[in-house]
């Protein structure tokens, strides 16, 4: 039995040391900027301009958060972002699941053609300008629906669900058909309950994308402040910080207790908090989703 014990050679110990060093550095580099932002967000505005805040606020202040929560455009942005995330995720999930269901039916007469029709969209697209003009002609610009309608079906998401559905035994559908169930009933009552894990995966991917997207707000709803999003507002805050050097910022805001740096930090924390709280509990879903997506086709 003793012979089976793993021998610790010199090389192995060096490797262990390197791994430990690498992982410690990795964790620090990953977490430090996030924790630093949290520290700055709780720091007094003028004091923060001096720099030198690391993991803990030097001069504690809650003012940044009260200011951020009182900023009208950020509140509107938050509401719109929540709305687009909820509506966008639900609608995308329903249509992608339906499409995947149709193309994964073995007997369906156009399953190959329909799959191809969607796979092509993964590789060919009109590009920014024609797409912009189409949305304008359809009346989607300057409206909330530009966040939900255009990106609803994505071939990639559909293929992930399809792969999962194809893996389910055919006998389920056959026996349900013998019992007189139609395609709708089979989808709602039999296939969908079994697809919960892959649905959760896709919902997670879509929700994160919706929550984090900003470019559509900038491109299609720049003029409509009532349809602004959290990320777009954050971007405006960011560019206001970038335009000012440290000293200029402190001079300009010397009478205020908040500065762009601390305001942005507070807004950043508010924006990332929901996702940071949720993702650790959803790990198994995105791991399965990626593994299916990686080996598809």
């Amino acid at each position: 039995m003793k012979k089976n014990k793993i021998k610790h050679t010199f090389g192995d110990r060096v490797l262990s040391f390197i791994i430990a060093l690498f992982m410690i550095a990795f964790v620090i580099i990953t977490l430090y900027p996030v924790l630093n932002t949290v520290a700055i967000s709780f720091n007094d505005g003028i004091d923060a301009v001096r720099g030198g805040i690391y993991l803990w606020p030097r001069k504690f202040a809650i003012k940044n958060y009260t200011t951020v929560l009182g900023m009208q455009n950020l509140v509107i942005g938050a509401k719109i972002t929540v709305a687009r995330t909820v509506i966008g995720t639900v609608s995308a999930l329903v249509v992608n699941a339906l499409l995947a269901y149709v193309v994964s039916r073995k007997r369906f007469m156009f399953k190959r053609e329909l799959s191809l029709f969607w796979v092509i969209t993964m590789y060919v697209n009109g590009g920014m300008i024609p797409t912009f003009m189409l949305y304008r002609n359809l009346g989607l610009t300057n409206s909330f629906w530009v966040y939900v309608v255009p990106g609803m079906i994505s071939a990639w998401n559909m293929l992930v669900i399809r792969t999962y559905m194809t893996g389910l035994p055919d006998s389920l559908e056959e026996s349900a058909q013998l019992d007189g169930a139609g395609y709708w009933t089979i989808f709602v009552k039999i296939i969908s309950p079994l697809c919960k894990p892959v649905y959760a995966t896709i919902a997670l991917f879509v929700a994160v994308a919706q929550w984090n997207s900003w470019f559509d707000a900038m491109l299609y709803n720049r003029m409509k402040t009532e349809y602004t999003t959290l990320q777009y507002e954050l971007m405006k805050l960011l560019s206001s910080v970038m335009q000012q050097s440290g000293s200029a910022a402190s001079a300009k805001y010397s009478t205020a207790a908040v500065t762009p740096i601390t305001i942005r930090a507070a807004a950043t924390v508010v924006t990332m908090l929901p996702i940071i709280c949720l993702y650790p509990f959803l790990q198994r879903y995105f791991v399965t989703g990626l593994t299916i997506g990686g080996v598809k086709e």
Partner: peptide
């Protein structure tokens, strides 16, 4: 996994800091 879930707005912001 954490940074993957942050938007580019946030990532470029903290990188800038």
């Amino acid at each position: 996994y954490l940074p993957h879930f942050l938007s580019w707005i946030i990532v470029t912001g903290i990188l800038h800091d």
